[in-house]
């Protein structure tokens, strides 16, 4: 019961932080709200007993992706006074559409009944992930490495300053 109240509090904080991300005028504030959202999501991973995912979420999203985003914000800051407002002219329509999507998804999740399997998480869940990488999911595992390689090469080519 106490944990359910905690769930609701953190859920409200996470969603509020997410809303902050999409409406904040200052991009750096948006990035900070984004970090708050990531931290909240990591809390839910802990509740779901996916501990490895929770720490990976912090390492990858807060440590790496958020830093990358902040660096990009600093690199592409717009010239002073040209900030014409955070949202574009269709924001109202998009807000209605998003609300409809959320409502539709919630409606869908209430009418569909999933068969819940109340088993405990095995103790060696992390070792099972590792085994999965090199057995069942070995092809995606290698493909991910190629994806990361291609992303690295592409991004370096795009972002490099060309010297004459």
């Amino acid at each position: 019961m106490a944990l359910q109240i905690l769930f609701l509090i953190v859920a409200i904080l996470t969603l509020g932080s997410a809303i902050g991300t999409v409406i904040a005028r200052n991009l750096f504030h948006a990035a900070l709200f984004l970090i708050g959202t990531f931290a909240g999501v990591a809390f839910f991973y802990v509740l779901l007993q996916a501990e490895f995912l929770a720490v990976s979420q912090v390492v990858v999203y807060i440590g790496a992706i958020a830093t990358l985003i902040i660096f990009a914000i600093m690199l592409t800051r717009s010239v002073m006074g040209r900030e014409a407002g955070a949202l574009n002219q269709w924001a109202g329509i998009v807000a209605v559409a998003s609300a409809l999507i959320i409502a539709a998804l919630i409606w869908l999740f209430t009418i569909v009944k999933f068969d819940v399997n109340p088993q405990p998480v095995p103790d060696d869940a992390i070792a099972q992930i590792g085994k999965g990488f090199v057995s069942t999911y070995v092809i995606p595992f290698e493909v991910v490495s190629i994806l990361l390689l291609v992303a690295l090469i592409g991004a370096i080519m795009l972002a490099r300053e060309r010297h004459q």
Partner: peptide
């Protein structure tokens, strides 16, 4: 700065994959 962050992101993911392994 961005290039360093970029290489870091890619290798960070690699480490995350290697820890369960």
């Amino acid at each position: 700065y961005y290039l360093i962050a970029l290489i870091f992101v890619i290798f960070d993911i690699e480490v995350i994959f290697l820890f369960p392994f």
